[in-house]
């Protein structure tokens, strides 16, 4: 069972952002970077698969040199090796990322490192395209299940399968697909571990394979970014502390959520 997990380096701004001068990106001079919570769950799942089924787990990113930081974070959680497709991820649209990942999976086909399962996040925290996993699956000709909350791999003489579940409009939905397959993971059912200190030390020495993409990206189609219209603060302070309770309940009555 060999798993490949795809993660993306994304800005971790928690308050309003500002744009670069050309409005093609957000100004990241004062923000840190992170990986999406969905992808952290995917990394955790890959590590657990190795613990229960053996095989290998590798992490992949398409991103600039600095994205090594996010690869190291995943390695510290217990993934053994990394693939760094070195590229300006802003120049890559979702179809380009899918193509770059498919090229890596294709290059490993038939070898000991052949990939059985690709895990991605359901949507990237920055561009939120909701597509890379699905586009990848079509490139590979593999089945894809999105929005997976948790899953199990079932190995048998006829070949492996994945039993996955996620939240649908009517409740919990179950899927059962043969391997090889693509899954996109959503935060909620898998709790990512905190990297241990030995894990962090190991991660520094773990092998990272650098890959140059073998094609010109088509791009994301971004014309420019805009900031959402700024709302001037209109807050009415009802008071301080417990004394403000009657004023607050007056508002609740006015808007009709408590009746007399």
């Amino acid at each position: 069972m060999n798993t490949l997990v795809c993660i993306k380096r994304v800005p971790a701004a928690s308050s309003a952002v500002t744009l670069t001068d050309d409005a093609m990106g957000v100004d990241t001079r004062h923000v840190g970077y992170t990986t999406s919570p969905h992808e952290e769950c995917a990394v955790e799942a890959a590590v657990q698969l190795v613990e229960t089924h053996g095989g290998t787990a590798a992490v992949l990113t398409v991103g600039p040199e600095d994205a090594l930081e996010q690869l190291r974070d995943a390695l510290a959680m217990g993934v053994r090796s990394a693939v760094h497709v070195v590229a300006d991820s802003d120049a890559f649209g979702p179809a380009d990322v899918a193509r770059a990942v498919a090229d890596v999976v294709g290059a490993r086909a038939g070898s000991d490192d052949a990939v059985d399962l690709v895990l991605l996040g359901n949507d990237a925290a920055d561009t939120g395209d909701f597509q890379v996993g699905i586009r990848l699956a079509y490139r590979l000709g593999w089945p894809v299940v999105t929005g997976v909350r948790s899953f199990q791999v079932i190995e048998s003489a006829e070949g492996g399968r994945v039993a996955a579940l996620g939240d649908g409009p009517d409740g919990v939905e179950h899927f059962d697909v043969p391997l090889p397959a693509v899954l996109t993971v959503k935060e909620g059912g898998i709790t990512p571990r905190y990297p241990s200190l030995p894990g962090r030390i190991k991660a520094k020495k773990a092998p990272v394979e650098n890959v140059t993409p073998g094609f010109e990206p088509a791009g994301s189609g971004r014309v420019r970014l805009h900031l959402p219209p700024e709302q001037p603060s209109q807050v009415q302070i009802l008071g301080e502390g417990a004394d403000a309770a009657p004023a607050l309940v007056d508002v609740l009555e006015q808007i009709g959520v408590v009746g007399r």
Binding site: V235, Q236, G241, A242, A244
Partner: peptide
């Protein structure tokens, strides 16, 4: 600052009073 209304203080004092 983005809300319509606000009460400033410790929620563990305000919520029981509400």
């Amino acid at each position: 600052t983005k809300a319509h209304y606000a009460v400033i203080g410790d929620l563990h004092e305000i919520v029981p009073a509400v």
